[in-house]
Nucleic acid binder design. Structure first.
Lengths: 207, 207
DNA sequence: TCAAAATTCAACATCGTGTTCATTTAAAAG
DNA sequence: CTTTTAAATGAACACGATGTTGAATTTTGA
């Protein structure tokens, strides 16, 4: 009760700053947002902003850290899933499903930050996180060197495809359930997108 | 010979501006680059910059326009390829192969502009261009509404996967030939990345 | 009510911006 | 080589965002 005495007040101010920040990124893009803008929108003094953050980059970093801490939490609470089981079952990784569930909750921020108005570095970090958790126990597999396609090329393909679908899902207001969308993803990964969607069949049946 | 009299001089200055611009984006990212920086690096007066461009955003736009004009040229010179033939042959679309050939030439700019230090909107525009040219004659196909996976989800998956591989290829100094890398891509699209790479087989053979 | 913490307010030097205008430099043409 | 004319320079300007300071004020919890 010593250090937390005035915590509530501080937290409220920080929340107002973050809310203003997100709405401003959505409107004009992160780069165009100024500390003035944030202070005005949050109805605080510009000096108050600097009591909590070094600058707008610091604020961005703090916001992103929150997200990654939650993702780490999700990854930790899952027993590292068995790849072999995944591949034969055709079911999405529990990590991915839970990720979509979480994204649904923090959609407003994630949608903005993953858009072209947001932070390109965030997408890169998120891609790496997804790959790390997806192939967590794959490094010990031998004979990796003689793949038809370099492992790195494949992981870039998979992680980018995931991010593309995540971005689309957020931008279209999450019409599908987390289970539906992650199931689509795993089907496209396992069979290829043309086969999984059935499009290839339709095209082939045409004269 | 009326208007082009002093064209050479102008062009040289513009080239110096663009070269300085690209190297500066690579160093500090587009957002951190100032007109001052560009003028200093290009060894011109700051005022001279404004004789040619409105601001750094205008310069960025002009640079990107050049790229898209070249891509349009590539798309035009190809007879719109037959999807059915593509799917049964397992060969990459000529458009994609030619795109990689062109990317190899303008690699220095494309690598930078597609990186997190570049312009996120450029990637989005490039993704749309790729999809437009890939599925050019697909809108007339009936029964699209009852696909297993919404067409938009599939196209986001495919275009994002392509961009991921393109980014990787540029960042690793294009170790594969355009033919090789686009062949990997089409294999991953047709069979799925795990099957195409052979990784799934290796994992399944493990006890 | 009182003390501490959080916030406000005004002021400051610094830097990048975009514009201007007179001047200088350099290229093409005679 | 000289003239013409476009391109580039250099200096100055007002503006707005930055990050910092110190004193005053408000809010909070005890």
């Amino acid at each position: 009760m010593e250090k937390k005495k005035y915590e509530r007040k501080t937290m409220q101010t920080k929340k107002e700053i973050k809310d203003a920040f997100i709405s401003l990124i959505e409107e004009k893009g992160f780069n165009a947002v100024t500390v003035r803008d944030i202070a005005t929108r949050a109805k605080i003094n510009r000096g108050t902003f600097y009591l909590h953050y070094l600058d707008k980059f610091d604020l961005l970093e703090k916001c992103e850290q929150e997200i990654f801490q939650k993702i780490e939490g999700i990854a930790r609470e899952l027993n590292s899933s068995n790849m072999k089981e995944l591949f034969s079952s055709g079911r999405p990784l529990p990590f991915i499903v839970n990720l979509f569930h979480y994204f649904q909750k923090d959609a407003s921020f994630l949608k903005v930050i993953l858009s072209p108005k947001g932070d390109p570095l965030f997408e890169e970090k998120l891609r790496n996180t997804i790959i790390d958790n997806m192939f967590r126990n794959i490094s010990n597999i031998p004979n990796m060197s003689n793949l038809n396609i370099p492992l790195e090329v494949m992981t870039q393909f998979i992680s980018s495809a995931h991010l593309g679908v995540i971005r689309y899902w957020l931008n279209t207001d999450m019409k599908q359930t987390p289970e539906e969308i992650s199931s689509m993803l795993v089907q496209m990964i396992l069979k290829g997108p043309l086969e999984a969607s059935g499009l290839i069949k339709i095209i082939m049946e045409q004269k």
